[in-house]
């Protein structure tokens, strides 16, 4: 069905990490989908105990189209004092994914990836293989399309409109006929008849 709105202008396709040195304190890494799970497993063993966040970005027009972004935090699992926590290392792992390409799930390493991966699947349509319960999380379960993709219009694609409810037309109002066609007289008549019947 053709959309009533033009899709938003996607802007120029960019690759932020390659543009200039990182401007926050995180380390940045780029990993291919085939090596992702092995790399994440190695990072977890290195001490990146927390998967802070998992999100995606749609660079429409670029190949690969999507970036799935893993924010990792190197935290000791028993840090009772502020000094012990110190300044943990942050690491951002970017993984380029083409439309339709699958990624392995990170749930086996960090259980917190569960809802984050569901959200990426829900809003971008990226499938995570091995996820125990991959279904929509934010949108209704029967929703069509992936709203955060750049080719998805802000107000969504055109859908069948429900017929408008009957409103009073000016001519009707002047003639005293309500939109349902039932006039006051007819109504009074009906009530009177009902009263007579009793």
């Amino acid at each position: 069905m053709p959309s009533t709105q033009t899709p938003p202008i996607a802007g120029t396709a960019i690759d932020p990490p390659s543009l200039r040195p990182p401007i926050d304190d995180a380390l940045i890494e780029r990993v291919a989908p085939s090596e992702l799970l092995a790399r994440l497993t190695a990072l977890k063993a290195e001490g990146y105990s927390m998967l802070l966040d998992l999100g995606a970005v749609d660079y429409l027009g670029r190949t690969p189209r999507f970036d799935v972004v893993y924010h990792l935090l190197k935290m000791p699992t028993a840090a009772a004092s502020v000094a012990h926590v110190g300044t943990p290392t942050r690491l951002r792992v970017l993984c380029g994914v083409e439309d339709g390409e699958h990624l392995p799930t990170a749930m086996t390493l960090w259980p917190s990836a569960d809802w984050a991966e569901r959200e990426v699947f829900d809003l971008y349509g990226i499938v995570f293989d091995g996820h125990a319960d991959l279904r929509r999380i934010q949108m209704p379960h029967d929703w069509e399309g992936y709203p955060l993709r750049k080719d998805y219009a802000l107000r969504g694609p055109a859908r069948e409109r429900a017929p408008r409810p009957a409103f009073a037309l000016k001519s009707n109002v002047q003639a005293g006929i309500p939109p349902t066609g039932r006039t006051l007289e007819a109504l009074q008549e009906q009530i009177k008849n009902a009263g007579d019947a009793e």
């Binding site: 304190d25 105990s49 927390m50 998967l51 802070l52 935290m75 699992t77 028993a78 840090a79 009772a80 004092s81 502020v82 012990h84 926590v85 110190g86 300044t87 943990p88 942050r90 960090w110 259980p111 917190s112």
Partner: peptide
């Protein structure tokens, strides 16, 4: 840590991670 809990809920489990101190 595995479930990515932060804030008072994490500190109630004995881990003194606070962004104001760490970053």
């Amino acid at each position: 840590i595995a479930w990515n809990v932060t804030g008072p809920s994490l500190r109630g489990s004995g881990i003194a991670y606070d962004v104001r101190k760490a970053f």
